[in-house]
């Protein structure tokens, strides 16, 4: 049973991945529609960032994580290097939790 679950999840996930990549060439999309594809990816990435920053298992994620992400976002806005953004976000959340703020 366990192996069936893993294989089903793996095959389905790989099918999603490959389908998009292969369809891109097969679909003869008009230029304006093609312009929407990177926007679609941006919308999905923004949604992933937004939901991961603010929610946890469908509920509000608490204080430490959103504040950490916000610190990182401000640094990114100020054109700080990527590594500084990531480290500052993690450090902020970790320090807040160390101080007892969830």
């Amino acid at each position: 049973m366990l192996i069936a679950v893993i294989v089903a999840l793996a095959v389905g996930t790989y099918a999603f991945r490959l389908a998009g990549v292969v369809l891109r060439d097969r679909l003869d999309l008009p230029e304006p529609l093609r312009r929407l594809l990177p926007m679609a990816a941006a919308a999905l990435l923004a949604a992933l960032a937004g939901t991961a920053a603010l929610t946890d298992s469908g509920a509000f994620a608490g204080i430490a994580r959103p504040v950490g992400v916000a610190v990182g976002a401000v640094l990114a806005w100020l054109k700080a290097p990527f590594i500084a953004v990531v480290v500052a976000a993690a450090a902020t959340a970790a320090l807040l939790r160390l101080a007892g703020i969830p």
Binding site: A53, G68, V85, A89
Partner: peptide, 16 residues
């Protein structure tokens, strides 16, 4: 505890 849950969305925002 390491704050990694904040690191991933922040990195995503930076790339976006």
């Amino acid at each position: 505890a390491l704050g990694l849950d904040a690191a991933f969305p922040a990195g995503m925002i930076a790339l976006l």
